[in-house]
Design a protein around this nucleic acid. Structure first.
Length: 556
RNA sequence: GCGGAUAUGGUGUAGUGGUAACAUAGGAGGUUUCCAACCUCUUGUCGCGGGUUCGACUCCCGCUAUCCGCACCA
């Protein structure tokens, strides 16, 4: 980062604190790392970003909003793979007390040590004896698991169950799949969105809002039928040339249509959500010139994903990943199915019913039951797998390892025709996941405009109307002759309107008040002057142009 | 987690072993016919804990936080 950038970043951070937008949390108690307050102005900004995000997706028509708990039982996150994935196995050097990740130490000794269990890692460490990267000693302590999730206990005393604060909102939406499926009349595609808090106990949070321990996230899970790929129309975006950093081609500039045609974007629905993400980010004020999409390399991608792109935004900290758009396949639903035995599937009907001829053997329960007793179940499975030309008696080795003799009387022919009208499948999921704090940071970064005005630094926050925390400031030119009263009544009227925030300010010169309003990005200021008292008109000043026009109070 | 630097009103800074200053911001009043003007008055500060000392914002130790490297992480 250059010196000029650092200085700008410091002025920006100072302004955000001074104006009540972003502040270190719990500061009077000394603060807490990785935790931030959205202040009296920032709280409203965050809310507007969240609301804009929700509206953006709900407008698609087949998306519903969920709100799931942040406190999550151990089993849920074990099934999703977070207990394993979010654990780092650490070991400490007894000589210099430097902690290291065991899998990193063992990279030279195993093709993929990250995949090993704790016991295997320990065995490999004992065998390989890698030297400490800090001091070259070989004195490793026993491996311990360090989890990046916040632990908690659900319930008290002996009835308490282990749990975590969720590291993402997604799992609640996957575990709600049966309710979502029912709600959507059992027809795909449909989606669920959730805006909420996530928690990661980062070892070392850095860079202000970029890595937090408690963060705001917004995720969409879009459930699709893999047998019927969706067609999307990208012509609406043909006017925009997008910067794509592709896995194979490197940086290319083209429209979404072209990228999908050329199979650079490998999955059309992933491409569709990239385009919709582009719309959202530019709507809330991200500069399109400082936005790009970067494709995950094959080895960077989670093993279940078929295509994965990050939206990266350039700001004071360089290019930062702010949105991840991933095709997650059926991984999550399947994982929860496997862990619970519950069905998380959708039904699809075949175009033509499939007719299956069954010609084989099954057991005669009345004879085989008493004969094989506890083994009868395993015998049934084995017999039903036998070809129709099998002759009995027959000696069989069961899956249990037991050997049995099957007599003719134990079995009977099974000859029938089954008609299958459809099948149950596990839906695939395309997941756009938004880091709201990172996006808000870049909205502020991109909107923060400093100009020399009359030899002085003058700062304006050029926020989009969608997210500006305050819609109007109402000023009396002077607080006398009734101008103050009229301005207050206009302010009160504006505050009554739904979803409108107005501020009244009468202290300092008019120029100072405009400057204060500009600094928190108020798009329009309304000023009551002498003429207002005569003809009930006021001036409306636009933040970005400074231009004023006069309109009647009733038209506000 | 390791190493280095830092911590003074809301913000940006000065300064000292004897209880703190400047600028700016904020409040009240005055003035002013629209973009941080001016005048008067005014509010508010040494990150937390311990030690040394008659006395600590200042020196020492610990903690916490911030910034920069390294490591870690999406």
């Amino acid at each position: 980062m250059s010196g000029a950038n650092t200085a700008r970043l410091e002025r920006l951070s100072g302004m955000l604190k001074r104006r009540g937008i972003l502040l270190p949390a719990f500061e009077i108690h000394g603060g807490a790392k990785g935790l931030y307050d959205f202040g009296p102005v920032g709280g409203r900004l965050r809310n507007r970003v969240n609301q804009t995000w929700l509206n953006h997706w709900l407008s698609l028509g087949n998306i519903v909003e969920l709100s799931c708990p942040t406190v999550t039982p151990y089993a849920v996150l074990e099934a999703s793979g977070h207990v394993g994935e979010f654990s780092d196995f650490m070991t400490m050097c007894s000589a210099c007390e430097e902690a290291s990740r065991a899998d990193t130490l063992l990279e030279a000794f195993h093709p993929n040590p990250d995949s090993l269990t704790k016991a295997d890692l320990q065995a490999l460490l004992d065998n390989a004896q890698p030297p400490c990267p800090s001091c070259n000693a070989v004195e490793w302590t026993e491996i311990t698991a360090q989890n990046l999730m916040f632990n908690t206990t659900i319930g008290a005393g002996r009835s308490g169950r282990p749990g975590f604060l969720r590291p993402e909102t997604a799992q609640g939406m996957f575990t709600s799949f049966p309710a979502l499926y029912r709600h959507n009349r059992e027809r795909l595609p449909f989606g669920a969105v959730q805006v909420g808090k996530g928690y990661r106990n980062e070892i070392s949070p850095r860079q202000g809002m970029i890595r937090l321990r408690e963060f705001n996230m917004a995720e969409l899970e879009y459930f699709i039928n893999p047998h019927e790929p969706l067609k999307h129309d990208f012509t609406a975006w043909d006017g925009h040339v997008i910067t794509l950093v592709a896995d194979e081609q490197g940086e290319v500039n083209m429209t979404f249509s072209e990228a999908v045609e050329k199979n650079i974007i490998r999955h059309e629905t992933v491409g569709y959500f990239m385009a919709k993400t582009f719309d959202f980010l530019t709507k809330v004020g991200i500069d399109a010139q400082r936005l790009r999409f970067r494709q995950h390399e094959a080895d960077e991608m989670a093993h279940y994903a078929t295509d994965c792109w990050d939206a990266e935004i350039h700001g004071s900290y360089g290019w930062i990943e702010c949105v991840g758009i991933a095709h997650r396949g059926c991984y999550d639903l399947e994982a929860h199915e496997n862990a619970t035995g519950k069905t998380l599937r959708a039904r699809r009907e075949f175009d033509k019913p499939q007719v299956v001829e069954i010609d084989g053997w099954t057991i005669d329960g009345a004879k085989a039951g008493p004969a094989f007793r506890a083994l009868a179940g395993a015998v049934k499975v084995a017999v039903e797998n036998l070809p129709s030309e099998t002759h009995f008696p027959l000696a069989l080795t069961l899956e249990t390892g037991d050997e049995v003799m099957i007599e003719q009387e134990h079995v009977k022919r099974d000859q029938r025709t089954e008609t299958l009208s459809g099948e149950w499948y596990i839906p695939h999921v395309v997941e756009p996941a938004f880091g709201i704090d990172r996006i808000i940071w870049h909205i502020l970064d991109h909107a923060y405009d400093e100009v020399g005005k009359d030899g002085e630094e003058y700062t304006t926050l050029r926020l989009s109307d969608h997210v500006a925390p305050v819609d109007y400031c109402v000023f009396p030119l002077f607080e006398k002759d009734g101008m103050g009263e009229l301005a207050k009544s206009i302010h009160a009227k504006l505050c009554m309107k739904p979803n409108v925030v107005s501020m009244y300010d009468s202290s300092g010169s008019i120029g100072r008040r405009y400057a204060r309003a500009d600094e928190i990005g108020v798009p329009r200021c309304i000023t009551v002057d002498h003429q207002s008292l005569e003809d009930q008109t006021v001036t409306v000043r636009s933040r970005d142009t400074g231009e004023q026009h006069r309109i009647h109070i009733d038209k506000l």
